[in-house]
Design a protein around this nucleic acid. Sequence first.
DNA 1: GATGAATGAGTCTTCATTCAT
DNA 2: GATGAATGAAGACTCATTCAT
Lengths: 216, 216, 216, 216
Amino acid sequence: MERQARRAQVLRHAKRIFARKGYHRTNVADIIGRARIARGTFYLYFQNKRELFEELLEEVLSELTARILRIRVGPGESDPVAQLRDNIRRVVEYVLDERELTDILLNHSVGFDRELDQRIREFYERIAALIQRSLDLGIEMNLVRKTDTRAIAYCILGAIKEVVGVLSRSPKAETAALVEEILDFGLRGVARPELLEAAARHGGHEDGGGFLFARN
Amino acid sequence: MERQARRAQVLRHAKRIFARKGYHRTNVADIIGRARIARGTFYLYFQNKRELFEELLEEVLSELTARILRIRVGPGESDPVAQLRDNIRRVVEYVLDERELTDILLNHSVGFDRELDQRIREFYERIAALIQRSLDLGIEMNLVRKTDTRAIAYCILGAIKEVVGVLSRSPKAETAALVEEILDFGLRGVARPELLEAAARHGGHEDGGGFLFARN
Amino acid sequence: MERQARRAQVLRHAKRIFARKGYHRTNVADIIGRARIARGTFYLYFQNKRELFEELLEEVLSELTARILRIRVGPGESDPVAQLRDNIRRVVEYVLDERELTDILLNHSVGFDRELDQRIREFYERIAALIQRSLDLGIEMNLVRKTDTRAIAYCILGAIKEVVGVLSRSPKAETAALVEEILDFGLRGVARPELLEAAARHGGHEDGGGFLFARN
Amino acid sequence: MERQARRAQVLRHAKRIFARKGYHRTNVADIIGRARIARGTFYLYFQNKRELFEELLEEVLSELTARILRIRVGPGESDPVAQLRDNIRRVVEYVLDERELTDILLNHSVGFDRELDQRIREFYERIAALIQRSLDLGIEMNLVRKTDTRAIAYCILGAIKEVVGVLSRSPKAETAALVEEILDFGLRGVARPELLEAAARHGGHEDGGGFLFARN
DNA sequence: GATGAATGAGTCTTCATTCAT
DNA sequence: GATGAATGAAGACTCATTCAT
């Protein structure tokens, strides 16, 4: 258990440095200097620098995975939008709690080695797939208009990534309002509802085409 | 001119490799191996690896900057949404044309050195600011509902980044449809207009709060 | 202390090689090969080759500086010539003790970089200034004839440099005799005293001009 | 002949740069930049950088060799001291005329490669031998007191080297006076003649020992 | 367990020299 | 002859990892 505490402490320091300098510019000297352990000790707790980083990465990925739940419909399940909101809220809360860790994922996670890059990409693809399934479900339930759900899934993923990415390196924000903004943006977009209504009345049909303004 | 041609050739090869392996995993040996030039020749054309990379980066950034125009309103200006659509179209077209270059920016650009990281961040902030201004303008013109425009600007930026980021490493897609999807998503969100109308009728007010489904 | 011992060992080997091949022809591989350490180990103890060299140089310069004392006159001070002799003796002894180090200074020290070159030149200028002051003092005390003391200071410096420079790469010599030769040469020159007396009697005046033989 | 003129011009530029930066810090780019010739052209006139340098070196060495004549005695020969004076004068004149070239020899000539270093050393040894022979001859002729002529030869050589070495990097000096100073220094040393006379009267004998002041 | 000295593979960069035009 | 682009050997330096104490 002592061992675990020591490890955790090194991880804590390393997290800091990785968040600030990224993977490649952080070297073992930085970490052991900060953690005040000897060079050899580092390798007592971690196989190597990559493994340490991987562990941190695993932590964000699994925590985020745990906080993003598949939308469920059926008796006894709460309203899908509420589920959606909860997902976003849990993600935002985690980002605010663990800025350094999420900063690593959101702002530094690229170009390690094939495997880690791959793992991150797969994570995002899993999330995108989850979103896409929710959209498909929403379409089925007549809650969501017909779209290219794969493209839109990435739009939604990107929107959240970017906004929380900025969040993870900015001063604390008010969670509830931000969650609502994101949710509203995803659901309603930015155009004024009245205009959308008007557009809808004048022969727009639900699947996209030619609404509000003429296309060229 | 000969010189420029040679330079361009090396840049072309380097672009490829950077796109595939990222900045840190690419070394000068990779580049000269691919470009089939001697080690010394590389340094004839570029001060070092970083400078070469910087040049590629500069190219994407300035090309994108050129393709993203500020939305203008007034007599003689075309419809703002059309301008928006054109911006998105031009970006998407560039991404499809220059996949490798944009892939570098979108999927590998982080953790070089303070200066390059900074430059990229500033680029995105410039774009976000542009979007935010457009949103503010839209609100003024009663085209856009009231929102936290800064947060939403990042959402929009992120949505586009992600979708074109995926694009830049996927097989060619149909541009027009994708542009329309992105645009529609940004303007209308994903919810069915009928539901939004219904929600609007039942006491929702335009600026966000509690629409469609109850919050917890 | 262990660290210091290791450092000293590398310095010892490097000294050898620098003395034999000079600064530019010596590379790090030579040093680590001789010292039987790995490449990285070298950089554990020295920032780079230049720094190591600088350290050796500093050592000779400071040791020589310490051994060359300003001539002092006054009650309680020993005879100036004795002081002079002691200076020369201490230098000669050091050269014989630390041939390699002094060989570096005397026979290889030129053309490193501006800074080191500068430092060496300043050292010699300091010594020359010291000698000049002694000469001026000697003139004041009526021990030394009137001369261009700056030029003669460099003559004396050069005489000593050259003779000990040869010394530092030759088999051991008898110190006391050599010191006396140098001292006598500086004080009396090479001409036979009788001739000088004769010349002095026949209208030569002490400050140089036309003595002993006619000038053309 | 055109060829020779071109060569000479490159040599002239190279001389400048070598004098300022020394052999190792001067690179071919410096030379061709200054001489305004193409890289390939350089190798049309010189086999390589070393050969060019060697040529400059050869020039100084042979010119100096030509100006330093062996002292001759016998009917029809001028007074040995006058011959000495002429040697010194010719050297000083050359140094003042060809500062850059002599600066290279006097202040930068060490650490090229074994062969050049060797050649320079041999040159000096030849000069030293010449001086030594003159001294031996002087002793025979009862003009020179008995000394360790080898050591003193190096003293004299060093004195001249140093003083003209300083000269070659200083503003122009008055030749005649300097020559006389050097000559006087070599012949009479620095001590006042009266003191030497006194010392000689009180039991000093000509070969060095215990004159003027007691030894410790 | 803890330490930190030692390692050496991996990279970058320079620069004298060559050679096709 | 003249050019200057191309070459590649030589050398410097870094840093993740190992290992004897």
